[in-house]
């Protein structure tokens, strides 16, 4: 059952509250820096680290505040200063991912949560005509296709981690995750699918934006960067491209929060969720995990059941 995302009508008030709260945290010395968004050059929100109460005045919260911020915590591992961060529902999953992977101490965080009913995809909105864009951002109605893909399956509107909530929690309707794109690929002939994926690998410029934005790709040192062992050859040959995408998707299997940030930041538009979702789908089918993208205390690949399907039966 798909979700029906909508735009929150009170975003302006929320934005004011966010600025006030961040300014308070910064001026009272509760946090040394506050991670949020500011308006970028083309008007679209971009990640921003405010370090003074005055800078908190630059924070924005609007229908295009899509980028998740939790990954930036890894830039602040050194030292013991406290960090403030704003998260909506899915943003809190990203944060929880980092916390559950024990990559940032919870004690050093002050989390400002915002219940969220939907965010637009900045790229889709940018492609609209000027008038259309203005209309959509002002008062809608909004074509459901303009929302981020993740909004269409989101059932976590309320942050799962927060210290302060800026508005009332929203009602929650649970969905059973569906993976139509994977099902389509599975329906293909094997050789046809291989050919399709070769095309995908071949279009990749190996910029690593997908890895760098991913909250589940949070190792201290990424194996893709290592030289010894050389997990990934530097050549962009078909084999190494395949290996790159294999490693990137497999290493987040069981920890991927299905945020789609990897796909969103890919400058060549690769449908990376077709790789990530395969694992999510199989994890449900093989191990009975109903919502595998929600960070759990023990991840599906970090545990087992003696009664798991047996491999010998599988050939």
């Amino acid at each position: 059952m798909p979700n029906n995302p909508t735009l929150d009508k009170n975003m302006t008030e929320t934005e004011t509250a966010l600025r006030r709260e961040a300014a308070r945290l910064l001026s009272q010395g509760e946090v040394a820096v506050f991670l949020g968004h500011e308006e970028g050059w083309d008007g679209v929100p971009v990640p921003f680290a405010a370090s003074t109460a005055a800078e908190a005045g630059r924070l924005v919260w609007n229908p295009l505040s899509a980028p998740h911020l939790a990954k930036y915590l890894l830039d602040r591992l050194e030292g013991d200063e406290k960090v403030g961060i704003v998260v909506n529902g899915c943003g809190s999953l990203a944060l929880d991912r980092i916390l559950k992977d024990r990559r940032f101490p919870r004690e050093r965080l002050h989390v400002v949560g915002i219940p969220c009913s939907g965010m637009l995809d900045p790229a889709r909105v940018a492609a609209l005509s000027d008038e259309e864009r203005e209309r959509v951002l002002k008062d809608g109605p909004v074509d459901p296709g303009l929302f981020l893909d993740r909004c269409s399956w989101c059932d976590v509107p309320n942050p799962v981690v927060s210290d302060t909530l800026l508005s009332e929690p929203l009602p929650v309707v649970r969905h059973r995750p569906e993976y139509p794109r994977v099902a389509e690929l599975e329906a293909m002939d094997r050789e046809e699918r291989a050919e399709y994926l070769r095309g995908l690998y071949e279009r990749c410029i190996r910029c690593f934006a997908c890895r760098n934005v991913c909250p589940a790709c949070n190792c201290r040192e990424c194996c893709l960067d290592q030289w010894e062992p050389l997990w990934l050859g530097r050549a962009t040959s078909p084999a190494e491209q395949q290996m790159f995408h294999f490693i990137r998707a497999f290493d987040v299997a069981g920890r991927c929060i299905r945020c789609g940030e990897c796909e969103r930041v890919c400058s060549v538009g690769l449908p990376l969720m077709e790789l990530n979702d395969k694992f999510l789908k199989d994890i449900t089918e093989l191990f009975g995990v109903e919502r595998p993208h929600i960070p759990a205390d023990v991840e599906p690949l970090g545990c087992f059941e003696p009664g798991d399907p047996d491999l010998e039966d599988h050939g």
Binding site: E186, R193, A194, F250, K278, D282, L286, F287, L311, H314
Partner: peptide
């Protein structure tokens, strides 16, 4: 076993 079960399905997915 869990990892390799996923791998088995994934290899087929990759062709």
């Amino acid at each position: 076993r869990r990892r390799l079960l996923l791998l088995k399905g994934y290899l087929e997915y990759l062709g």
